[in-house]
């Protein structure tokens, strides 16, 4: 098993409070790991640590994050800047706030390329065309401002930005939570399809096990900063070992489900 990224005993504290507590997992190239838990379970903080983007109030961090034989916590800011967005990219939850409202979306995508690579104008235009095609948006959309686009379209733009430098690892933080169920399906199918062709490693953060089932190979369940269960998706979904995992799976209403009440 070759690992592209290894998180070892990661601990993050805000003052005396543990938000991530001794978390370890690996990412493999071409595989999707889902990080599942409720809000406040430490999922997002784990992801931010991987980009060395923890807020300043996180005053203690321990553990190691190994990427390309380097510990991310040992790198100086300049080296980290070269990895962030370039080798390890992240797509954020809120497509409404994560885009610059006064810049055309195409420009926002090429800006991401400019930050890491020296490319001529034509090369960038070519790359932009490629990316728009990959996220299945008409090229003309690149000339729009964010407010002119729907939530699903904005999320595709975010995806194009994250993919712009062909990262080795893509982190997605609840990318479809703010979308309608039907739009969510389109966006998830698209993400899955791109991931399968480009074979990057993916860390997918969500609170919804029905989404996990659609996209993940492996699952890591977090609660209050701890990893309570991890394993291959089918194993965790079909035979969850921990009560908390069972609860997260069973609290989703199903079609044709005869339960008058949901657990919770």
């Amino acid at each position: 098993m070759n690992k592209i990224l290894e998180v070892k005993n990661l601990t993050v504290m805000f003052g005396e409070t543990y938000v991530v507590d001794n978390v370890s997992f690996d990412l493999e190239p071409g595989k999707v790991l889902a990080l599942v838990g409720e809000s406040g379970s430490g999922k997002t903080m784990t992801a931010l640590a991987m980009l060395d983007l923890l807020p300043r109030s996180a005053d203690h961090k321990k553990g190691e994050i190994w990427f390309n034989e380097q510990n991310i916590f040992d790198l100086d800011p300049e080296c980290m800047r070269k990895i962030r967005g370039n080798k390890i990219a992240m797509m954020f939850q809120e497509p409404f706030t994560a885009l610059n409202p006064v810049m055309r979306v195409g420009k926002q995508i090429t800006e991401a390329i400019d930050a890491h690579q020296r490319r001529s104008h034509d090369e960038k235009e070519g790359r932009l065309n490629e990316l728009m095609e990959r996220v299945k948006l008409p090229r003309a959309i690149a000339m729009s401002y964010p407010h002119e686009l729907s939530g699903g379209m904005r999320q595709r733009i975010m995806l194009a930005m994250a993919l712009s430098c062909s990262p080795d690892i893509l982190i997605l933080d609840e990318p479809t939570t703010a979308l309608d169920v039907s739009i969510q399906k389109h966006v998830l199918d698209l993400i899955k399809q791109i991931q399968e062709t480009e074979q990057f490693a993916m860390l997918f953060i969500t609170h919804d096990f029905s989404v996990v089932n659609m996209i993940a190979d492996d699952v890591c369940v977090m609660k209050e900063g701890f990893v309570v269960e991890k394993g291959p998706k089918d194993e965790v979904l079909k035979t969850p070992k921990v009560q908390y995992t069972k609860h997260l799976i069973s609290c989703i209403p199903r079609l044709g489900d005869k339960r008058g009440r949901l657990p919770g």
């Binding site: 409720e38 919804d208 008058g260 949901l262 919770g264």
Partner: peptide, 16 residues
């Protein structure tokens, strides 16, 4: 729709 699935379950039960 803006709540986690586990919180959602509690609110749905409460509404019933």
């Amino acid at each position: 729709s803006s709540l986690d699935v586990s919180i959602q379950a509690g609110i749905l039960n409460l509404l019933k």
